[in-house]
């Protein structure tokens, strides 16, 4: 019994960090209808930023986190301004935004790899160790990450449902064009949305860097977050959270009770099956994600 509970705790802690990114995917998808492929680069840049802020410039931890956030937001806004906005203005098919994001991601990740090399960089130990609760170990860093994820999500929810900007975002998710006709400033809204996704990527970058060390291919994990967002129903924030926790637990249980080498197979098979059989995911909107190119 303890072992199952321990695996559940591990799974939830993995899922909580997926959730940070999955919400970012869901947010961008619900408004702009494309999978934002550049989260990978945002996350890795933020992780590198935090690492060098700590090790090279000897900044305190809070300053390093701020540096990571600044990098995440800055890059996200740059991409919005230079890679997505011109396409949107032209009314290009949404899949071209995906290609643009993919291209930017490919270039940035490999640029980081060339500039810094593939070696691993470890963060100075922070919040290492764990609490023992009834024979179950709960990692301190994991607990902090989960708490952070929940706080950010709660904050995001508050922003969406209790502020004017949030109203604009929600209106845009229903009908982008009508919302802009009704006076929502599209460009300001886009900066806000991509800024939020930069914050989410920045925080996850720091958390991942601390958990697994910093290296250029750290961002491969963003694929998992995308799967989580799809499982939850692309475009739904609650769905993204639920999908992330489910995926984290699924992965842990497959690793533990089937074989760890089948873990990713299950994750990607879940992605394909959900999309084919159940394209709206668990909590997705009724309407299908995209009905044209």
């Amino acid at each position: 019994m303890t072992i199952i509970l321990q695996q559940l705790v591990s799974g939830l802690s993995i899922g909580a960090v997926y959730a940070l990114l999955a919400v970012g995917y869901a947010l961008v998808y619900s408004i702009y209808g494309f999978t934002n492929w550049s989260f990978d680069a945002l996350l890795v840049s933020a992780a590198f930023g935090a690492y060098y802020a700590l090790s090279l410039f000897k900044l305190p931890l809070w300053a390093a986190v701020l540096a990571a956030l600044a990098l995440g937001i800055g890059l996200a806004l740059m991409l919005e301004l230079f890679a997505y906005r011109p396409l949107r203005r032209r009314g290009a098919p949404r899949v071209l935004m995906l290609i643009s994001a993919m291209g930017a991601n490919l270039a940035l990740i490999n640029l980081i790899n060339l500039a810094f090399g593939g070696a691993l960089r470890a963060f100075p130990p922070f919040l290492s160790g764990s609490w023992q609760v009834a024979g179950i170990a709960i990692g301190r860093l994991d607990a902090l990450a989960a708490l952070l994820a929940l706080l950010l999500l709660a904050g995001l929810r508050w922003l969406l449902y209790h502020t004017r900007a949030g109203l604009g975002i929600r209106a845009s998710t229903m009908d982008f064009t009508t919302a802009s006709l009704m006076g929502v400033d599209n460009n300001a809204l886009a900066l806000l949305v991509f800024g939020i996704s930069g914050v989410l990527a920045g925080v996850s970058g720091v958390v991942y860097g601390m958990k697994y060390a910093v290296y250029p291919y750290l961002g491969l994990v963003t694929l998992k977050a995308m799967i989580a967002a799809v499982i939850g129903g692309l475009g739904s924030l609650e769905g993204a959270l639920l999908g992330s926790l489910l995926l984290g637990v699924l992965e842990t249980f497959v690793s533990a009770f089937i074989s760890s080498t089948y873990r990713d197979l299950f994750s990607f098979a879940a992605l394909v099956l959900i999309l084919l059989i159940f394209p709206n995911g668990l909590l997705g909107a009724r309407r299908p994600p995209i009905l044209e190119g």
Partner: peptide, 20 residues
């Protein structure tokens, strides 16, 4: 007897079984 594949970063499921 636990296994993993290259580029793995999460070993807690396996380690939990080792501990048990």
């Amino acid at each position: 007897e636990e296994g993993y594949q290259a580029n793995e970063t999460e070993f807690r499921p396996q380690l939990t079984k080792v501990a048990a």
